[in-house]
Design a binder for these strands. Structure first.
Lengths: 140, 140
DNA sequence: TTGAGTGCAAAGGATTTGCAGGTTC
DNA sequence: GAACCTGCAAATCCTTTGCACTCAA
């Protein structure tokens, strides 16, 4: 695995942005001139198979990526209007995983994500720049 | 909302098959001659906006549908090897949503999904027919 | 030097949409 | 009879792939 400019930029972007982020957003975050969107796809795919990032399909079916390394137990609430993520520190999941172990499952992991309208967007409904909702279902 | 043959068939299929099921599977289940695949898409979309069915994006990004009626809110654990889903009945989420409301969020929803290796796949590692990873990577 | 990485264009699969014709209420 | 539903074809969106070229090791 070689170290290249796009890869560094992608990792930096993932580090900076804590919480799951879409490929599109990563591309914009690092600057679209740094590399092609396809490269972002390929890099994340590579990172994933190395276990460096985690992929999750949240809510709307588009996939989001997140650094695996050193992520402590915390979650996020994503604003459905502006897309901003906020941290949710505590979530009682240990008992659930224990229960599933008792059922015979191994290598248990989970995805938890909250969605809502943040206080800011409630005050300024116009600030809803980035639609988070569906893929093409976004008309809903 | 009119009652038509395809819609009846789809509801019956969803009733028969408890647990999340893909659109493709519903189409095959009701018989492909009953209606076009597009109609299944449209019906499920309609059912969803009426709150009759729930849509979830599991692990691999394809979406599955499930009857809402009568099923209390529950979650799933998806086997990372064979892709089979199993039900997880209880999950303490009310307190979390209350906490987020206190933070000023509204219209709160959430996604919870568990992953693991099911007991069967632990015994027969060869039974891993269905790769769960990618989405059109499913040609693999 | 040399093979992994990249860009560009194009393919591919899932889902949605437009429109004309059929069906339910 | 009118509005809703459907089928078919085509459009879209997201993601992956093919291929020639570039660059890190």
């Amino acid at each position: 695995m070689r170290i290249t400019k796009p890869r560094i930029a992608i990792i930096e972007s993932l580090t900076r942005h804590e919480g799951p982020i879409s490929i599109e957003k990563i591309h914009q975050d690092i600057g679209t001139e740094v590399c092609d969107l396809v490269t972002v796809y390929r890099c994340l795919s590579a990172f994933e198979s190395l276990g460096m990032v985690r992929r999750s399909y949240l809510h709307n079916g588009t996939c989001l990526y997140e650094l695996t390394l050193g992520t402590p137990r915390h979650y996020h609430i994503v604003c459905k209007a502006c897309g901003k993520t906020d941290r949710v520190d505590y979530f009682p999941v240990e008992s659930m995983e224990r229960m599933l172990q008792d059922r015979g499952y191994t290598q248990i992991s989970h995805v938890v994500e909250f969605f809502g309208i943040c206080p800011t967007c409630q005050k300024n409904p116009e600030s809803r720049q980035t639609s988070i909702s569906g893929r093409r279902t976004s008309r809903a």
